[in-house]
Nucleic acid binder design. Structure first.
Lengths: 187, 187
DNA sequence: CAATAAAGTATCGACTCAATACTTTTTATC
DNA sequence: GATAAAAAGTATTGAGTCGATACTTTATTG
């Protein structure tokens, strides 16, 4: 019964966030999906900045994603670069304009201010709780995690620094903060 | 900085839920917005079951909402009834089919199962935390709360039962559980 | 080397959504 | 009480989303 209440609160929260996101995007001629794709691209690592990964992250087909990315490119918010090794693959990089826009969007949404006036919760508590739910939900629904490398089971801590256990490439301090499409939680 | 992390987790959670909702709706030929509108109508009270209220709840214009409701009516998921007093107003009631569908949708989303395997959180804790965030966010962004009567500042507890301080109508035990568009939190 | 798979694009049709214009009914205002 | 303004809803239009399908190019597998 209380599970119902948690569900309702979460849904309402999602609606509110989407509402604000839509209102913000409208002022810049951007659709909600376009904002979300751009936001993802500012946060993901070099293995995860492809149209395919964007589609997996947002749960959309590659055809759909292709169009939204075309729109973002035409608006000068991202650039496309073909992969050196695999000529089928394209890497997407947000432009400076794109990066600035996503920063402003996050601030505008007001979650920071909302948490500031809600002194009964710390943002750390909220983050922990949301991540637990997130992990459970991904497990139940069989979705990919899309977490950052520093929480990944493939991330190996060597004395010289971090290394990805999948690609065996070294990871910088910035790298391990980025979202990876191959991410898996430990255990 | 941790505010950023909370924001990201919440956004990811919203994406996942929307992903599941889309997949579910697709199997029944319903769009995400249509599902959300129908869900709202199964939960709102008799002052809040109008196209206008649906628009306010979902943050959409009345024109947009009008079309989605038309689609829901044609699919036999809701019925329209004109108001007795105000002939401009139309009341929307989900059919039995509509009610059953929303029930199934909520279960399918898997939040319940996700919470079950996440034994570090109780659903009561999650609900409380989400509601606090919700309240803060609504305050910051100046949105309507759309809460249930039993948490409303206009709800008066008399010895004979609850009464709405705005309409002065008596409220049953079921009534005070429903969502109202005039809802305001105390203080 | 041929068959198959994978990454991406293009096109189509149903739908969303905001904007605008419109109708009907209610409420103010004089 | 007549007239103006506001409010609730519908209809239409145009840009965009989205899944499905078909297609091209490049990799991988046998």
């Amino acid at each position: 019964m209380s599970e119902q209440e948690a569900n309702d609160a979460l849904e309402r929260l999602c609606n509110l966030l989407r509402m604000e996101a839509r209102a913000f995007g409208l002022r810049f001629g951007l659709q909600p999906v376009q904002m979300e794709a751009l936001k993802y691209l500012t946060q993901c690592n070099r293995y995860s900045d492809t149209p395919q990964a964007v589609g997996e992250y947002l749960g959309l087909t590659k055809g759909t994603v292709s169009q939204s990315l075309k729109a973002l490119e035409q608006k000068g918010l991202l650039t496309k670069k073909p992969d050196k090794q695999d000529k089928r693959v394209i890497h997407l990089t947000p432009t400076l304009k794109g990066n600035n826009l996503t920063k402003k969007a996050t601030q505008t949404k007001g979650l920071g201010r909302a948490l500031a006036i809600t002194n009964s919760i710390t943002d750390t508590e909220l983050t922990q709780m949301l991540r637990s739910v997130l992990r459970g939900l991904q497990q139940v629904n069989g979705r990919k995690a899309f977490g950052a490398c520093h929480t990944c089971r493939f991330n190996e801590q060597h004395p010289e620094g971090s290394v990805c256990g999948l690609t065996h490439e070294p990871l910088s301090a910035q790298d391990v903060q980025l979202i990876c499409r191959e991410h898996q939680y430990p255990q």
